[in-house]
Computed example of a mutant assay.
Amino acid sequence: MKAFSETAWEIFNQAITDYHLADDVDTSANNPFQKESLEHLLYAKNWIDTVQWHLEDIIRDEKIVPEEALKIKRRIDASNQQRTDLVEFIDSWFLTKYENVTPDNNAKINTETPAWAVDRLSILALKVYHMALEACRETATDEHRSKCREKLNVLLEQKNDLTTSIDQLLADIENGKVKMKVYRQMKMYNDESLNPILYQKAK
């Protein structure tokens, strides 16, 4: 049976490849997986990350018009909220999956939930994809390509460690060795009742 992390990695790379067919931040995702499935959530998660990756590139253009930069910053803020919401959906999926597991009396609590580890794996897939491009970019110097190949090797080692850790965490939750506990992020900057800049304007 294929490990969860392997499936996630394949889906992330599928989303990245699909995005780069048009390579446009305004392209809508054509998620090929059944709605409400874990696969659908993983694809959607990485699509958000991929679009945001490129928005972060665009906003760093020194010649960007300030008004356009502000629009992109707003998009990035909204994207961060979508990303957080989707991570919590993925954690909810895992909570449902393991709801009948009774943790051991001495079960540990992990510092990171499965979905937040998956979030890091999604970003890592983007780093690997773009570093591989740089390692082969013909317009770059040999020194640049060499340094990027070294960085790519480190990223691939990190991928092996992270995927192993995710699968071990899921196995430990399933076996009752780790208690899955989720705290919602409760981001405050987008909430008109919690961000003082927003609620003071409403007076």
Results as ranks from 00 to 15, higher is better:
Lys201Met: 13
Met1Asn: 11
Asn30Glu: 15
Phe94Gly: 00
Phe4Arg: 00
Glu67Lys: 12
Asn190Pro: 07
Asn160Tyr: 09
Asp85Pro: 02
Ala29Tyr: 10
Val101His: 01
Ala140Lys: 12
Lys187Ser: 11
Glu138Asp: 10
Asp61Gly: 12
Asp85His: 09
Asn100Trp: 02
Cys148Val: 02
Glu143Asn: 11
Gln168His: 07
Arg83Asn: 14
Phe94Val: 01
Lys147Pro: 01
Lys97Asn: 00
Leu170Val: 00
Thr96Gln: 12
Lys63Arg: 12
Cys148Tyr: 05
Val128Thr: 11
Asp191Thr: 09
Lys73Trp: 05
Ala107Lys: 04
Thr102Gln: 10
Ala3Met: 13
Ala3Gln: 13
Ala8Tyr: 03
Ser122Pro: 05
Leu124Trp: 07
Leu42Gln: 04
Leu194Thr: 08
Lys35Gln: 11
Lys187Glu: 09
Leu95Trp: 01
Lys179Ala: 06
Cys148Asp: 10
Glu138Leu: 06
Trp47Lys: 07
Asp49Leu: 10
Ala78Leu: 10
Asn31Phe: 06
Glu157Pro: 00
Leu162Met: 12
Gln82Tyr: 08
Gln52Cys: 11
Leu198Asn: 04
Arg184Ser: 14
Ile197Thr: 10
Lys151Glu: 12
Met186Glu: 11
Trp9Ile: 04
Cys136Ile: 07
Asp61Ser: 15
Asn175Met: 03
Arg120Lys: 15
Phe33Cys: 03
Glu174Ala: 13
Leu42Pro: 05
Lys201Tyr: 13
Lys179Glu: 13
Glu150Arg: 07
Thr163Glu: 11
Lys45Trp: 02
Leu95Ile: 03
Lys181Cys: 04
Ile64Asp: 05
Asp18Asn: 15
Gln168Pro: 00
Ile72Tyr: 09
